[in-house]
Amino acid sequence: MNTGAVRDHLLGERREWVQTAIDCADAAASGWDGGTATDSERVVSPYRTTLDRAGVLADAPAVLRECVEAAGARLSADPVAAPPYVVVTSEGLLLRATLDDRLLVRVRVFGLADGAYERVNETPAEAVTVDLA
């Protein structure tokens, strides 16, 4: 499976979608005291809300389908904007598809340091990772 092609697709044709997910992280983090959050729910809930309002979650199934196609594979079922296909985590947004391997597409916008969550990865190139598990 071609993970490089998936990354290229996200940083090319879907760059605006990735940037919107990053902008949503900025909006969610703006409500944190002192720029950090100490529990994952203070990260996940506001991030999910901003992603939903911006249309990122609604577009996520189509983006996942495109990623699978870019990888040279096909999905056996249509993904939906909910687990297990689309998951909002304390690190950001995760898209996953189970093929021969599990394709994991992440927009990582939060990190944990010294027991507190902080905003990380300001650009699409920094935020996007594509892995097989």
Results as ranks from 00 to 15, higher is better:
D52H: 13
T129R: 14
T3V: 12
S90G: 03
I22K: 09
S30E: 14
V18Q: 09
A70H: 07
G111N: 05
A37D: 00
A97W: 11
H9L: 15
I22T: 07
G4S: 11
Q19P: 00
D114W: 01
V43N: 04
H9V: 09
A37G: 03
T38I: 10
T49K: 15
C67R: 09
G55K: 02
Q19H: 09
G72M: 02
V56Q: 07
R74Y: 01
F110A: 04
V107G: 09
G35P: 03
L75R: 03
L51A: 07
R14D: 15
R108M: 07
L103V: 04
V105M: 10
A70R: 10
A127M: 07
V120N: 08
G34V: 00
A77N: 10
T38G: 12
P84H: 05
T38E: 13
L132M: 04
R119T: 02
V120L: 10
A113D: 13
R119D: 01
P83E: 13
D26Y: 14
L132A: 11
L103A: 03
A28D: 06
V128F: 02
T49Y: 11
S76H: 14
G31P: 00
L51M: 06
S76K: 15
N2Y: 00
V86P: 09
C24D: 08
G72N: 04
Y117P: 00
P61Y: 08
V68M: 02
V107F: 05
L93W: 11
